[in-house]
Amino acid sequence: MGIFLKLLEALGLGGKKVNVLVVGLDNSGKTTLIERLKPKHAQSAEVAPTVGFSVDQVRKGGLLFTVFDMSGAGRYRNLWEMYYKGAQAVIFVIDSADRLRLCVAKDELDNLLASKQLPAKVPLLFYANKKDVPTALSPVEVAQALKLEDIRDKPWQIVPSNALTGEGLEKGTDWLADILSR
């Protein structure tokens, strides 16, 4: 069975379906990041603020990710909760150059962790995005600001990224694929 699945994977056909929720404050780069995860030919150059949410499918690391790209705008954040149920992984995107709103991001993260809807052992992947901006914080600083070390019941990882170029994205998805296919 295992060999068969591997074979399918190699052919790029099979793969487990995984629901991934992408959240984060507005203008942190969620939609751009997802665009960059897609194959080159399917990427669109233009990205507008998401209203509500949008769904995409991305094949990465032998898994078929169904990505729910949530809008980060204030009025939609309380609606993220509606999608926690059934999510198998959460990607939290942080604008690491936006020091001012880091505390807002922390609040939203705390809300997310406190939610009962979110499955218990769901892996959390943090992208410290916009690392190309000179004033960007390092992933360690971001992790400290968000107090990530306090998260003990869920596996998590923080990865520096640049969604414009796609730098660092692979590293994060590989980690996710690794955790999820375990």
Binding site: T50, V51, G52, S54, V55, D69, S71, R75, Y76
Partner: peptide, 13 residues
């Protein structure tokens, strides 16, 4: 109405 707005982006796509 504030919930139905959720699907706007999906629909625009």
């Amino acid at each position: 109405s504030d919930e139905v707005i959720m699907i706007t982006s999906s629909l625009m796509k």
